[in-house]
Measured scan of single mutants.
Amino acid sequence: MLEGKVKWFNSEKGFGFIEVEGQDDVFVHFSAIQGEGFKTLEEGQAVSFEIVEGNRGPQAANVTKEA
């Protein structure tokens, strides 16, 4: 699992990017966010995740919000 911070997330469109120190930003789709209820992320929020190869390159999977 990697750790990063949410760079930005558009809850209307359901996607955004996660910043990872020393690496390129990683695309995140709302469907990759773990948990119940409305799936969104806040700018600057700490998250842990895995990287998988998507249709358009690397993207986040199994995203969990850090306490």
Rank of each mutant, 00 (worst) to 15 (best):
M1G: 13
M1P: 10
M1H: 09
L2K: 14
L2E: 06
E3S: 14
E3P: 15
G4S: 03
G4Q: 01
K5M: 05
K5T: 05
K5A: 08
K5E: 05
V6I: 12
K7V: 08
K7C: 03
F9Y: 07
N10E: 07
N10C: 04
S11T: 14
S11C: 05
S11Y: 13
E12K: 11
E12Y: 14
E12D: 13
E12P: 11
K13V: 06
G14Q: 03
F15C: 04
F17D: 00
I18K: 00
I18S: 00
E19S: 08
E19M: 15
E19C: 06
V20F: 07
G22L: 11
G22A: 08
D24A: 15
V26H: 03
V26C: 05
F30Y: 12
S31G: 12
S31I: 11
A32D: 11
I33K: 01
I33H: 01
I33G: 02
Q34R: 09
Q34F: 08
Q34C: 06
G35D: 15
G35H: 15
E36I: 09
G37P: 11
G37S: 13
K39Y: 05
K39T: 06
T40C: 05
L41Y: 02
L41H: 01
E43R: 15
E43M: 13
G44A: 08
Q45S: 11
A46W: 04
A46V: 14
S48L: 09
F49N: 00
F49E: 00
F49V: 03
E50M: 11
I51T: 10
V52Y: 13
V52L: 06
E53G: 12
N55Y: 09
N55A: 10
N55W: 11
R56C: 05
G57C: 04
G57P: 04
P58I: 14
P58W: 10
Q59Y: 13
Q59L: 08
A60I: 02
A61Q: 10
A61Y: 13
N62W: 03
N62K: 14
N62S: 08
V63Q: 00
V63I: 06
T64Q: 15
T64E: 10
T64F: 14
T64C: 05
T64N: 11
T64L: 11
T64M: 14
E66Y: 11
A67H: 14
A67N: 12
A67I: 15
